[in-house]
């Protein structure tokens, strides 16, 4: 798995020298400063960093969803094809289809006015066409796959009628319904409580194993990133300060910032031990 990312040609996503800046009257704020990384098929790459370090801006840049006034330079390649600066029309075909995104707050990320079934169905229909009714059937199926019981009935419920964990499952169902090659998860479990968080992580890795989706997993929770990702990037103030296999970064952090991040965890030994266990578990599973 480690070798996959080194061989660029196998990369699903290649980001090179990505820079995102905002021009304002106060000057130019560069919030992402020349970061580079790759994500391969079936691989999970974690991005950690504290609030404001540019994690979301990076993921939105990949999706082409940055606010219009943001200026982006560098290169973003999906399957070797440059998508930075691609037309909106072209990006629309990729979004939700080849690459999909799960956001932090599932309640505000779902439209309160429409049933969850409709919201999953429209994502499917946007790319696969067909009738809304047929898409609804796909939605029922997708909801079942993310572990929502009685999906036939729940498909016509509204977002506010679900719990936080169930809503995030729906977001995942929506993101996965067109079987994307790349899934970007921007703090998908931050708004959830710990037990639910574990369930969602479990679900995501299970879906990934089934579909071989490459995943970019963004979080500020080191324990989470150690659980899910094979490789990790540590971001600070818009820059990647350290990257490598999760194991290396966590056991022998090189950068002072990473060390400080790890030190900030109450018992520094725990995540590393936990990490090793999980890493081994994942390897044997794969």
């Amino acid at each position: 798995m480690k070798n996959l990312d080194a061989a660029g040609s196998n990369s699903l996503l290649e980001v090179a020298d990505l820079e995102v800046s905002f021009a304002s009257s106060a000057g130019i704020a560069t919030v992402v400063q020349g970061i580079s990384f790759t994500v391969a098929r079936n691989e999970t790459v974690g991005i950690v960093g504290e609030s404001g370090s540019g994690k979301s801006m990076t993921s939105l840049a990949i999706m082409g969803l940055l606010p219009p006034k943001a200026k982006t330079t560098g290169s973003i390649k999906l399957h070797g094809e440059e998508i930075l600066g691609a037309s909106e029309r072209h990006m629309r075909k990729l979004r939700g289809n080849r690459m999909a995104m799960v956001f932090q707050d599932p309640l505000s990320s779902l439209n309160p006015y429409y049933t969850v079934g409709m919201q999953i169905a429209e994502a499917y229909k946007a790319h696969r066409g067909g009738s809304m009714r047929a898409a609804k059937l796909v939605a029922v199926d997708a909801m079942g796959r993310v572990g929502i019981s009685d999906p036939q009935r729940r498909v016509d419920s509204y977002p506010h009628q679900f719990s936080g964990g169930m809503r995030q499952r729906i977001m995942i169902a929506m993101a996965m319904c067109c079987e994307p090659d790349l899934l970007i998860a921007d703090e998908p479990t931050t708004a959830l409580d710990v037990t639910v968080q574990a369930q969602i992580l479990e679900l995501m890795s299970q879906l990934q194993n089934e579909s071989g989706t490459g995943m970019l997993f963004i979080t500020h929770d080191l324990a989470v990133v150690s659980q899910v990702s094979q490789r990790v990037l540590v971001m600070n103030k818009g820059k990647v300060v350290e990257s490598g296999t999760t194991e290396d970064v966590f056991s022998t952090p090189q950068d002072p910032y990473t060390q400080a991040l790890l030190d900030a965890i109450p018992r520094i030994d725990d995540p590393i031990r936990a990490l090793k266990k999980v890493e081994m578990g994942m390897v044997s599973e794969a």
Partner: peptide, 26 residues
Amino acid sequence: GENFVRTARAKGLSSMLVLRRHALRP
């Protein structure tokens, strides 16, 4: 500016559909 509008765009809906279906009604 709502998150669900961002979600709608992330699904790959056309901007017209995002506007009409997701932004207009609320």
